[in-house]
Design a binder for these strands. Sequence first.
DNA 1: GAATCACATTCGCGGATGTGAATGTAGTCT
DNA 2: AGACTACATTCACATCCGCGAATGTGATTC
Lengths: 126, 126
Amino acid sequence: MDHGNPTLEVQAQLLRTLAHPARLYILQLLRSGEVCVCHIQAVLGERQATISQHLMALRAANLVRTRKDGLRVFYRIAQPHLLEALDSLRPLAIGAAGATARRAPRLRLMPSRGRCTCPRCQASSA
Amino acid sequence: MDHGNPTLEVQAQLLRTLAHPARLYILQLLRSGEVCVCHIQAVLGERQATISQHLMALRAANLVRTRKDGLRVFYRIAQPHLLEALDSLRPLAIGAAGATARRAPRLRLMPSRGRCTCPRCQASSA
DNA sequence: GAATCACATTCGCGGATGTGAATGTAGTCT
DNA sequence: AGACTACATTCACATCCGCGAATGTGATTC
């Protein structure tokens, strides 16, 4: 069923999932490999629940996968082509800068690339 | 200003503009060249005002350009790489089909590829 | 087993978005 | 000029999304 063109709704759903600066930034964070939630939280400077909600959205869209290691949960990109597709879309955004740009959630990043207690952060804090 | 990472908001804005099945379909319609509004209206089967609003959103994002010819207004893709970027994003949507898929505006297309009085439609009605 | 940590989930509110109805506007025709 | 066509714009309402607050869950440590 869905005789006509069913994928348009699905594609729009994917785009809505991507259409938030925090989620875009999280995906960029995962570019270099898997990252724990506490790390994302430290860098983004948003509340834990808020970040968890964004991660939930990314999971629901099958864009990321998780791995539990003790108390921590590590997130990684599920579909490798995702970042390439986003990269190819980026230059178009520059041309669209003049758009109405209503909401603008303003995503303030932590100045010092916040540290958490995860191994990754301990390693880079040398 | 905007020291940190200002493009994330702009990129999210672009994605939100794209995140609607009607607008995605309009962009696909424009793939083969410029198309008048009456044609889009005939194919999409939505109200004229609704379509005009979607076109307004696409214009605000600099994704399409217009050309007036008499009473009609012809729309065309402004940035050629847009469709490529959307194509590269499409396979990811298939994997994301299991997403919550809340709204789903359901975009019903006209069965017979509706005709309007524009030259393009007259030509193909042979 | 009680406390704690790291993360997930639910609920409710405010702001943003989509759509229908009505109206406005520029161009064409007679 | 008046009527008509093709399209744009505005307003109001219903819906959706993001966020804060509060709570739940599983694993760890003492």
